[in-house]
């Protein structure tokens, strides 16, 4: 399979503070990767850096899409190459959702109306984007906008935080649809709730202090995270124990 996205030795600082400290990652076509990590470990920073948001300064390393170095490209250029992101905390935008949809998709047809209805957000069309939307509405709108961009790589930043079970179910369906349509996914999740709703996840990574400290089978990694917490991964001397715990996993090496 073709390597779609490759992140090499990435060092990134935000507001003068180094957040990513030499990070490597490789995602192939139609793979679903999950990123776990404690608060402040750099998960959102990684996604925002791949998207190219200007606040995130690349000090070293590079981001490659299908072998092309995109590290210096602007967000819209990356979007045109097929990268899209569902924001964790999107800003409020003073433009009506319906108006953004009209501009985003070349063909505004019944298909989109069906999607809106399926996501239960058709009533938001005439409202300014994310103005007074509930937590669940924000997540559903973000995932829809990401879907409509028909991305090759979808960066999903905590699509499951602060949403109820119904929303999880709906959001899970859209993620499955994204994969069916050929996208690769890099998904950040805090508690892993969304994983139950996703048909197939290839790999899970644990991100601590700006580095990926472990990559393995998603279910097993989640198990350890939930049972032992991230502190388990923190201490380098105990990493061996971790690997012992998830013994039998061929991909279990950092």
């Amino acid at each position: 399979m073709v390597t779609l996205l490759r992140v090499e030795r990435l060092r990134v600082s935000v507001g003068g503070r180094e957040v990513l400290r030499g990070l490597d990652l490789m995602i192939r076509n139609q793979e679903v990767h999950v990123l776990f990590g404690p608060n402040g470990s750099g998960k959102s920073t990684l996604l925002a850096t791949i998207m190219g948001l200007p606040r995130y300064k690349v000090k070293e390393g590079r981001v490659l899409l299908l072998g092309r170095d995109i590290t210096k490209l602007k967000p819209f250029e990356r979007a045109k190459l097929g990268i899209a992101m569902a924001f964790q905390n999107p800003p409020r935008v003073n433009v009506k959702l319906g108006y953004i949809l009209e501009r985003l998709v070349k063909k505004y047809d019944d298909g989109i109306l069906n999607e809106l209805n399926a996501l239960g957000i058709a009533h938001l069309l005439k409202r300014n984007l994310h103005h007074g939307f509930s937590g669940g509405e924000i997540k559903r709108v973000e995932i829809l906008l990401t879907l409509l961009q028909r991305p090759r790589v979808a960066l999903l930043d905590e699509p499951d935080s602060g949403v109820d079970v119904d929303s999880l179910n709906i959001i899970g369906k859209v993620i499955n649809k994204l994969v069916d349509e050929g996208a690769s996914i890099l998904l950040v999740t805090h508690m892993g709730h969304i994983l139950r709703y996703i048909e197939h996840v290839d790999l899970a990574h644990v991100l601590i202090d700006g580095r990926i400290v472990y990559t393995g089978e998603p279910k097993e990694v989640l198990n350890i995270v939930l049972k032992k917490g991230y502190s388990f991964f923190k201490d380098a001397s105990r990493r061996r124990e971790v690997y012992a715990e998830i013994e039998g996993s061929p991909k279990g090496k950092s």
Partner: peptide, 29 residues
Amino acid sequence: ISEEELNYLMARGFTEEEATSLIVRGFLD
């Protein structure tokens, strides 16, 4: 127009100019 708003729309695939005019047009609606 806030930088955050502009960057968000640029991440959705709009050029800076398109994002600005989208915000302006949306403002007038």
